[in-house]
Design a binder for these strands. Structure first.
Lengths: 156, 156
DNA sequence: GCAATCAGGACTAAATTGGTCCTGTATTCG
DNA sequence: CGAATACAGGACCAATTTAGTCCTGATTGC
């Protein structure tokens, strides 16, 4: 199935939340509360996104995470790559997986290469800003990419 | 992770094998032998692809499966749709999944729509013929999209 | 020095996918 | 007409992957 992993989906939700308040340091607990994503999961996401350059971190009592760039300067492709690795439909991709010993000879390579490039191109054109809510709703936003990704929140 | 399922990968391999001999009826056992994909798995794939119009079937002693169209008239998008459902990175897609009750209001919808359209477009432009081996090798072809998809064959 | 928060990594539960098996139905051939 | 062949449908389980959690260590600010 061609699907984003739930974690990647969560990451976009979390980053969108961070983008609402640029220049602010957000703690894991705060982001978890605002997005409904479990705190250990948010922590896991931030540990992956920070080394990838999407966010910056500050340890210590006043610590937390901040976006490293404005939302319109962060592409969805970067987010997906940070969490899922190189964007491709198959394992055959430059530098992504050298398991396939015959990749240079693989007859299907040409077709997949075209597909992978198009998918990467599309994802690079969409930024985090494009994914953010243009419609104002009372926080926390209920809407997300999919109900499957939206963790159950306690009823109010 | 953005990956084709192994079953979809197998399907492309099996269809490519069928495309080498157009106008011929192939049995599940034959296709399994030629591709190295286990027979029950090939059967499962054919049960999904036949209703989708990719192949036709004939029961009975002289039965089997045949491609319903030439390889260059079958897009990868159709194959993926037949096995994995509508092509989209998220569950929010027209008619694909009505679990999300707020999909009409989902603020991220616009961005994903663009991405999903681009991915579908790219996959529709690549046909089964593009994926077939242009390089002649002794059958059965060793090359496939990924070593992960290639089931282990008994050593010769 | 302590509390707060990130960093790293290991581990387990849950979910999904891969793969198999069984019975039923249709078709062909002897 | 019956047996053999092969597809059709669906249920089920094993294997794999992903989601989610937990623990310890390091850093920072008050």
């Amino acid at each position: 199935m061609i699907r984003l992993s739930k974690l990647t989906d969560y990451a976009i939700v979390v980053l969108s939340e961070m983008a609402r308040q640029v220049g602010t340091v957000h703690t894991v607990a705060h982001l978890a509360d605002r997005t409904g994503v479990p705190a250990p999961t948010v922590a896991k996401l931030m540990k992956a996104m920070t080394p990838a350059g999407l966010t910056t971190s500050q340890r210590g009592a006043a610590g937390g995470y901040a976006l490293s760039r404005a939302a319109d300067a962060i592409s969805i492709a970067e987010i997906i790559t940070a969490l899922d690795g190189p964007i491709a439909l198959t394992a055959c991709v430059d530098g992504a997986d050298s398991q396939c010993g015959v990749e240079q000879l693989c007859p299907m390579r040409g077709g997949w290469e075209k597909v992978n490039r198009a998918i990467r191109g599309a994802l690079e054109e969409v930024t985090l800003a494009d994914m953010m809510a243009p419609i104002t709703f009372p926080a926390p936003a209920a809407a997300t990419t999919s109900t499957a990704a939206q963790p159950a929140r306690p009823a109010h």
